[in-house]
């Protein structure tokens, strides 16, 4: 028997990685039409203390009777005790989740995926680009960086949505704009009413903001998350503006069933989004053409 396999087969039985932990919904907030923020804490008190994650990682949440869904964690690991998820009502499982209320029990396992390379980013500028619901995993990164602000140089946040109504975390994003230690540029697809105008005077595509970022691209790490169609354009624009491919990180979405590299659904070329991602450097697109 070969050593490598002998080792594998002679191991004691490991814990079941697919077994989730019970969690309580502690708070639900309607962010925008069809979008809610859910806060959870584990029934197992110890787990609340020991739980750690990296911004950009995700969990698998069991919606009772409906099934499991992969959802990015949108709270920062620097704020312990509760996990927050931003959920858009889009399919058969999220519809059921959206009907759930504080006090209801769900089950959560994770965290999964690689997360943003927050430690590598230390000592550099950070440019965060969010489109629509893409803000969710980046919110975790934003608060992580702001809580450890001295470790990073300049921080930029670019956020694009359809209109003011669909802006997520409206209050938070408004407060961010007032902070002196972070530069925020917000844009809307179309400005149609007073509310929109009060939010921003910028109208157009998220990509238009990129040239306005006043950072040295070579000293900047970029984190991008948005709808699947946006990546190609954002990627192109970033490269045009001199950001190195190895320093641009995109957070990708795929169908997932297991989160641990066993179900296969999330494969992008030779990589699994769940274990090798969901955060990929733009450099990977060279080998994985179907990525974006």
């Amino acid at each position: 028997m070969k050593k490598s396999l002998e080792k594998l087969l002679n191991k004691p039985l490991p814990g079941d990685p697919l077994l989730p932990h019970k969690a309580l919904i502690t708070d639900v907030e309607e962010l925008a039409p069809g979008h809610k923020r859910f806060s959870f804490s584990f029934l197992d008190e110890k787990l609340n203390e020991t739980w750690e994650h990296i911004p950009g990682q995700f969990v698998m949440i069991t919606v009772p009777k409906a099934g499991e869904i992969p959802i990015s964690i949108c709270s920062s690991p620097t704020r312990k005790g509760t996990i927050e998820l931003t959920v858009r009502k889009v399919g058969r499982k999220t519809e059921v989740l959206h009907q759930m209320k504080p006090g209801d029990v769900v089950a959560i396992r994770g965290p999964y995926g690689n997360g943003f390379p927050v430690e590598i980013m230390e000592g550099h500028n950070v440019l965060i680009i969010a489109g629509g619901l893409g803000l969710a995993p980046l919110r975790s990164l934003i608060w992580y960086i702001l809580d450890k602000r001295p470790l990073y140089k300049e921080v930029y946040i670019l956020y694009g949505t359809r209109n003011y109504e669909s802006v997520l975390y409206k209050e938070e994003m408004r407060r961010l704009r007032k902070r002196p230690d972070v530069k925020c540029l917000y844009i809307l697809d179309k400005i149609e009413n007073e509310e929109d105008r009060a939010w921003t005077d910028r109208e157009g595509l998220l990509t238009e903001l990129i040239p306005e970022v006043d950072l040295d691209p070579a000293d900047t790490y970029v984190a991008v998350c948005g709808p699947p169609v946006a990546y190609k354009f954002i990627g192109k624009e970033l490269l045009k503006n001199g950001y190195p491919e190895s320093q641009v990180f995109v957070s990708l979405e795929r169908k997932m069933e297991c989160g641990i590299g066993k179900c296969g659904h999330c494969q992008i070329g030779y990589k699994f989004t769940c274990v090798d991602g969901p955060i990929f450097p733009l450099w990977d697109t060279k080998n994985l053409p179907e990525m974006l």
Binding site: K65, A66, V96, Q99
Partner: peptide
């Protein structure tokens, strides 16, 4: 359907 979930 009785459980309020869409079948798959």
């Amino acid at each position: 359907l009785l459980n309020g979930v869409k079948p798959f």
